[in-house]
């Protein structure tokens, strides 16, 4: 029983970690060479041997840490709001065909609008405060969660529902006790996709709006005049690391919480 849970993660764990490190080292090597040999203008693309120390320096810089915290906080808040809207929304759209038919045209119209394209409009309407970037990130992060929740309900096993109903479970209770837990792994996948989107939207909004504190604004300021390219790149790499860490964390959470959903052969 224990090995059923442990086996997949240990196999991939021992193989994947060194491989990914090799890939990362390779990327830094190419970057270093490209920068040192002048393949790309060295003035703008500083080599990692400068960027990495700059990164370490930034992590001790209070101004930078405040900016980073502001960005991460905005992203997390946006994600939570998106979950609060999209999960109940997806449950309703997924379980009541009439509501779904009525709403899908609107949803399909709104979804393709990139939230980044709404930045100028949002800045005009709501100003440069944190609520603007949060609102935009919510808009961008809604869709993967909404669609994953909705489609997860399509995959709901009718026998699970029938079993619950035969034991006297009412309609609403079927939704919360059967549909929601069945859909949970798909919802979490949606959340994982949405985090990346929310982070991108938050940073983009900060790049646009001078007054909004955050990682994007920090990068933009360091960029002005081109004097601190090492800091610009260091900030960018850290933004990437935040996204990577969140993704890895959510993947772990998925493996831990939803072991029951992992593909497996016949139990012995």
């Amino acid at each position: 029983m224990g090995f059923l849970l442990g086996k997949p993660s240990t196999v991939s764990g021992t193989r994947r970690v060194p491989a990914s490190l090799v890939g990362l080292a390779g990327l830094f090597l190419i970057w270093e060479v490209a920068s040192q040999t002048g393949l790309v203008p060295e003035l703008y693309l500083r080599p990692p041997s400068e960027v990495l120390p700059a990164m370490v320096g930034l992590l001790g810089d209070e101004k930078f840490l405040r900016a980073l915290l502001a960005t991460v906080l905005a992203t997390v808040i946006a994600l939570l709001i998106a979950i609060l809207i999209a999960v109940p929304g997806g449950l309703v759209l997924g379980s009541i065909p009439l509501v779904r038919r009525a709403c899908m045209t609107v949803v399909e119209f709104l979804r393709p609008i990139p939230s980044v394209a709404l930045i100028p409009l949002a800045l005009l309407i709501t100003g440069t405060g944190p609520d603007t970037k949060i609102a935009l990130a919510v808009y961008g992060a809604l869709w993967p969660i909404l669609f994953n929740t909705m489609y997860a309900l399509d995959e709901l096993d009718p026998l699970h529902v029938e079993t619950a109903r035969a034991f006297g479970t009412g309609r609403v209770a079927v939704l919360t006790r059967i549909a929601l837990p069945s859909a949970a792994p798909f919802v979490l996948t949606g959340v994982r996709l949405s985090f990346t989107i929310a982070l991108a939207v938050v940073v983009s909004t900060e790049l646009f709006a001078g007054g909004t504190k955050g990682l994007g604004q920090f990068i933009m300021e360091a960029n002005s005049g081109g004097a601190h390219m090492d800091q610009v790149l260091a900030g960018t790499v850290i933004a990437g690391l935040v996204g990577y860490a969140a993704n890895a964390g959510l993947e772990r959470l998925n493996a831990k919480l939803f072991a029951w959903n992992a593909p497996r052969g016949e139990a012995s």
Binding site: L159, A164, A166, F167, G168, T169, F258, W260
Partner: peptide
């Protein structure tokens, strides 16, 4: 006060619940 046992146990038990929780479900 009626209970049903279906043929397809693998689909009638809830995989996200432990055995104990499955039995407690109703």
């Amino acid at each position: 006060d009626l209970a049903v046992v279906f043929q397809d146990y693998s689909r009638s038990l809830f995989p996200w619940l432990t055995v104990q929780r499955n039995v407690e479900f109703p």
